[in-house]
Amino acid sequence: MMLRIALPLALPFAIVAVAFVLLSQTDAYIIRLATTFGMYAALALAWNIIGGIAGYPSFATAAFFGLGAYVTAVAQNLGAPLLVGVGLAGAGAALFAGLLGSAILHLRGKYFAIASLVIAEVLRELTNSWTSVTGGGMGINLPLAKTTLLTQPQLYLAAMLFLAAAATSASMLIDRSRLGVALRCIAQNEDAAQIIGVDTRMAKTWAFVISSLFIGLVGGVYASWVTYIDPTDVYDGAMSVKPILMALLGGVGSVFGPVLGAFAYLLLEELLWRNLLEFHAGILGLLVVLLVLFLPGGLSQIRGVGLVSLPKIWRRAP
């Protein structure tokens, strides 16, 4: 019993610690790439909790990402240290998700997708016009974090990898918990889930809150890393879609699929970006189209398609 809890808690962090030691002395390009990988993996894992395991296709990733980035930016400009700023980013995003969830989580399918899609637009407009606090469309600068042990790039590599490990642990724990069972029931047949006594509202809200917590944290670290953010950058709609693509690439609803998907996506992105800087968004668009048209696996099911199929973790036969 202890091992079943301890292993998912310890293993991702152990892997990440080793990776950090190996990567931290390499050149700036590799470190930047690895940091981006940590960010993508954490985002894909976080989306997967609500979008994959619970089957609620959220397009609100950009909203929580941007919110986290701005909460950190404003907090740090008011003098909060890095850790406090990032913590506030996570807390702010989670709190917002809890409130928002009560308004939109009773919507199903397309209606939920639309409602979630609009959230980022609203936040972007508000950020744009609340100039006194956010700097408006001009964006906002963040102070450089004070570091002694690590260089700046090493610090953010460690932070992003840590978040990826934490998101992995959270996914593994959810997968083995009552919450995970409830979410899978909801994804497959929400009415039937209620009839067997699943408190669907509570389960969905938790999934949304946990997912948004991680997205907010990632947004906070991202803002501190790049030291300058503006509304079009952090509330970018592509930020909502990339994690979905990664999860689709790796396997929606599985625990490790999004991590693999994030890696595969990063490789594709790197190959294309470097050669086609001017037209990279167009290429990303083409990539999405090709992926959607030629994604392997069942045509009517998206769960379990991709590199990793549905896990069988709590499926131990009698």
């Binding site: 083995r176 069972v181 497959q188 047949n189 006594g197 699943v198 709590w314």
Partner: peptide, 25 residues
């Protein structure tokens, strides 16, 4: 109204877990 992608055992386990008040999976 089954949960189609779950096994028969998983279907009933879910019911016992939530409606049946089981303490653990």
């Amino acid at each position: 109204q089954p949960f189609p992608a779950m096994t028969v055992l998983e279907n009933v386990t879910a019911a016992a877990l939530f409606g049946g008040g089981a303490a653990s999976i």
